[in-house]
């Protein structure tokens, strides 16, 4: 056995290194955020929100990309939230301990971490090839597939927190299951379910890879879900890799917008959660 002095020295050293690592991760976060602010803020003028994308030097903005992103996230939510909510409810209410329930939970966990670019390839094969073109629909459905597992996971977790006694009380009064779920369980877990949806929006807002082969991007102004549709992440991807200074500046402005939005949603959902627990 090593001497006491040596053991204490080891303990001290490891503690110091751990504090250093934690500090390092905070520094990295601050560094990334600082880079975004330092490069994005100077490029962030009103024109970003009032002009659509334009050729280099023509003073374009990101309006069509922002609107396109909002539309696709909105449609994805309309498609994905009900499925995710129902599936999460299924896991918490009907699927507990059953084989189907376990299988669904397993598949959902895999989908939650599956490479998002493959969701894009899948929707490309499923919708873009047979229907003959890239479209806002395809992009929205790809995002819906990103959203579903997030909503399923949080819904199940949150409904599991609702005391069994509440449900039993309602059942004892003779309420059918749809009433128990909608009026008792969902209502009791409302804050948690909303958190899941906020997290899902945050996740979908930053996804680039699934949109590459589905909604493709669009440099013009288009609100049609049947045509290729612009989105903020794709515009950033295009512009960041370009050789034109004003495009790169716009990419930083877009990156700042997305990050601020996504981090706000995350912090907001954590506050809701903290309040609930």
């Amino acid at each position: 056995m090593a001497s006491l002095a040596r053991r204490r020295a080891t303990d001290y050293t490891v503690k110091a290194i751990s504090v250093g690592f934690a500090a390092l991760s905070l520094v990295l976060l601050a560094w990334i955020l600082w880079t975004l602010v330092a490069r994005g803020l100077p490029a962030l003028g009103p024109h970003v929100f009032t002009h659509i994308t334009a050729p280099p030097g023509a003073g374009g903005g990101l309006l069509n990309a922002i609107v396109g992103s909002l539309i696709q996230i909105g449609v994805a939510l309309i498609i994905g939230t009900p499925i995710g909510l129902m599936c999460g409810t299924f896991l918490a209410e009907n699927g507990r301990g059953t084989q189907v329930g376990n299988a669904v939970r397993f598949v959902n966990d895999v989908l939650l971490s599956a490479p998002s670019i493959l969701i894009g390839l899948f929707v490309y094969q499923l919708l873009v090839v047979p229907f003959g073109g890239f479209s806002g629909w395809a992009g929205s459905i790809a995002l819906a597939i990103i959203i579903i597992p997030v909503v399923v996971r949080t819904t199940e977790d949150m409904l599991n927190l609702v005391p069994i006694g509440l449900r039993e009380a309602a059942f004892a009064l003779g309420a059918p299951q749809w009433k128990v779920v909608t009026f008792i369980t969902w209502r009791a877990g409302r804050a948690g379910i909303v958190t899941g949806i906020l997290l899902a929006i945050a996740r979908a807002a930053g996804e680039t890879a699934p949109l590459l082969f589905t909604s493709l991007g669009n440099n013009g102004w288009s609100l049609s879900l049947d045509a290729p549709m612009a989105s903020l992440p794709i515009a950033i991807y295009q512009y960041a890799a370009s050789p034109f200074e004003d495009w790169v500046a716009l990419a930083w402005a877009g990156a700042l917008i997305i990050t601020v939005g996504v981090l706000t949603l995350n912090i907001l959902s954590r506050l809701v959660l903290a309040k609930m627990k």
Partner: peptide, 16 residues
């Protein structure tokens, strides 16, 4: 704060 590192979109890491 450390969890927020996971929330930052992948494309932002790419640019940075």
């Amino acid at each position: 704060a450390i969890q927020l590192l996971a929330a930052i979109p992948s494309i932002i890491y790419g640019m940075w």
